[in-house]
């Protein structure tokens, strides 16, 4: 797998990629946040994005589900396709957002009951059947490894849970609309290591059913989970390739080596 001295040839996936990003540029009120990046994400894979703060990681995720449109002053160019369809040309942005689950850095328990937190998205999609809803909520909470802790108090406020529980609640909510792609933005930033490891186990399981895009501030997390990793710096791709290569002693770029080994960043 490793090619120590020669840069590895670009490995093309066997299937058509799940997500294709081409020459994506993004600016906030004239200030460039992403400067023309292109990459592919494979189906049912974990794709990690690492890089220091302000390198455009979170903005990139916002482009994937088009919530960037709701940020005042943001201007985007370039194309993003999912399953070969341009996301900007989809008839319904709400369907897109249901296909692309998003977990924000800080856990957000909506000021609703735990049950309603998870049932929010299905209800918004026009779902009414009570039994199916209950089954779906249970399944999502189980998948997010939260069910056992909250099954007796589904009707207490989601905002009263601890930080780690709220983050798993957020993941359960993101699963509730059955996404094909799950984006996680530095999910471990506000929770303890034990919970982080539990969620990582959850992700390993989910990977069999969906494509996961993982933005992380912990480079070792990328190493543990991802098969491909992208190093983003200042809105540009420094290096993108198999995780093993980025974390080897001789990645393509010296900067990558310095970053993953903690010499800067």
């Amino acid at each position: 797998m490793l090619a120590p001295s020669v840069p590895p040839p670009p490995v093309r996936p066997r299937h058509p990629p799940k997500i294709q990003v081409r020459d994506l540029r993004l600016s906030y009120g004239g200030q460039e946040a992403i400067r023309g990046i292109s990459f592919d994400v494979d189906r049912n894979d974990v794709f990690a994005i690492i890089g220091p703060a302000q390198s455009g990681k979170s903005s990139l995720l916002k482009c994937l589900n088009r919530t960037i449109e709701l940020v005042p002053g943001a201007k985007q160019s370039g194309t993003i396709t999912i399953d070969g369809l341009n996301v900007d040309e989809l008839p319904s942005v709400y369907n897109l957002r249901r296909r692309v689950g998003m977990v924000a850095p800080l856990p957000v328990g909506l000021p609703l009951s735990i049950f309603d937190n998870v049932a929010f998205a299905p209800r918004a999609a026009g779902f009414k059947d009570k039994h199916e809803l209950a089954a779906l909520v249970e399944q999502c909470l189980r998948q997010a490894a939260l069910w056992d802790e909250v099954k007796d108090r589904l009707h207490t406020l989601g905002t009263k849970l601890s930080g780690g529980q709220q983050q798993r609640l957020t993941i359960a909510r993101a699963l509730s609309h059955e996404p094909e792609i799950l984006c996680l933005d530095e999910f471990s930033i506000a929770i303890d290591p034990v919970t982080t490891m539990r969620i990582e186990d959850v992700l390993k399981e989910l990977k069999q059913r969906m494509t996961i895009v993982l933005v992380t501030n912990l480079v070792q997390q990328a190493r543990r989970l991802a098969s491909r990793t992208m190093f983003l710096w200042n809105g540009e791709i420094v290096e993108e390739g198999p995780t093993d290569v980025l974390f080897s002693d001789e990645p393509q770029s010296r900067k990558t080596y310095d970053y993953v080994n903690g010499i800067f960043g």
Binding site: N95, R98, R99, P122, A125, G126, F127, D129, E132, A135, L136, Q139, H177, E178, P179, E180
Partner: peptide, 11 residues
């Protein structure tokens, strides 16, 4: 997930 709940596009 059942078909009615299963479509990512939702009902």
């Amino acid at each position: 997930l059942s078909v009615s709940t299963g479509s990512p596009r939702g009902p």
